[in-house]
Design a protein around this nucleic acid. Structure first.
Lengths: 192, 192
DNA sequence: CGTATTTCTTAACTTAAGTGAACGAGTGGC
DNA sequence: GCCACTCGTTCACTTAAGTTAAGAAATACG
């Protein structure tokens, strides 16, 4: 698992053995069981997550209903807005599958960034990259219908459709579970 | 206008007089006429934009139709994905109003960051903040109807509804201009 | 193993968005 | 000042998503 992390980092910066050791000494690796709730609405958290294996999701509870807005799978990172804004969280984070995560505290990041300025550069590159991707995804969402969104998900993240419950997928696509069922039936209809 | 910039920066870092001079020597300020196209689909651009006054928008042309996905007004910044990914641009950027912009090249940023590491820290803070906001906005979009989106825009950016053409607003809300007209009529109906 | 619960699908009906077309108001260009 | 064009609105009609409800299938759990 450590290899996976170092390979990922190597896409941005080159680490010395010392720096690798410093990273490993931080006790970042955690295994988390399916269903575990990592963050609750209203909490003041300072934790960021990086998925090495498995899947976590963010969701709101609105009128007693869960609304899933994002899934994070292998090599995806999540710093909740509440950490950045220092406000109570608006949403929940839970584990969709048994997962292996990197969990880092805001304080730890400050410390390691002070010792190795390289990390700061990597964080900046990474967050700019995420921002660009996020913008592109948002644009695609705005300019397409639920059906188009589903078809494009089928192309881009076919695994998600297998590993995630339909009703969570539905709100991720911006619709109700019943509409997703119907939409899938409609697509099968067309193919034949 | 320079004051506006420095006041904005002061929310993140403290600049010395030297650093301010260095910034000003870069020839960042530009006045741009309404309707000017700053970036075209297919172009390889390295420019980032920061709006000091006015309004710019990003839009795609799909099936010959413009789809506006974002508006950037006072104190908003935009680094197009094509700059980050070094790919040809998927979208256009144009000026909605006569505007005063900061336009920076990727190369210039590298240079100033090398001379003043502070800027790098600011850029990282800023892009993390943007990412968090972007996530929140995306979540809100996914979990609400066109009507709710319109009402919330009315709350959060009432100026936009005045300064921007309806058909551009419509695609920003993820719907057609006719639907926006109808939706507004529906809301007025309800109020009475 | 059987029961309870969750998940997914289907159906009938309601509501709202998409589509195509038409019209008046405003705008810009010549 | 006139014409062409864009823009916003309205209408009738189509299509798809929301809602409510019911039932089947899968899963969790004692």
């Amino acid at each position: 698992m450590q290899e996976v992390l170092f390979e990922f980092i190597s896409k941005y910066i080159t680490l010395t053995a010392d720096e690798k050791d410093a990273l490993l000494s931080l006790d970042l690796f955690h295994t988390v069981k399916k269903g575990t709730v990592l963050l609750k609405e209203g909490q003041h958290s300072k934790e960021s997550y990086f998925v090495l294996k498995g899947c976590i999701r963010t969701y709101y509870i609105m009128d007693g209903e869960e609304k899933t807005t994002a899934f994070y799978t292998e090599l995806n990172a999540l710093t909740p807005p509440c950490v950045v804004n220092k406000t109570p969280s608006d949403y929940f984070i839970s584990c969709v599958e048994d997962s292996i995560l990197l969990i880092s505290h805001a304080g730890m990041e400050v410390e390691i960034n002070a010792r190795f300025p390289k990390f700061d550069v990597m964080c900046r590159m990474f967050s700019e990259e995420l921002l660009a991707r996020q913008q592109t995804d948002f644009d695609a969402f705005k300019t397409s219908s639920p059906e188009q969104r589903y078809l494009s998900l089928l192309q881009k993240r076919p695994d998600l459709i297998q590993r995630v419950p339909q009703h969570q997928l539905a709100s991720y696509l911006g619709i109700k579970p019943q509409s997703l069922s119907r939409l899938r039936a409609r697509i099968l209809e067309k193919k034949s």
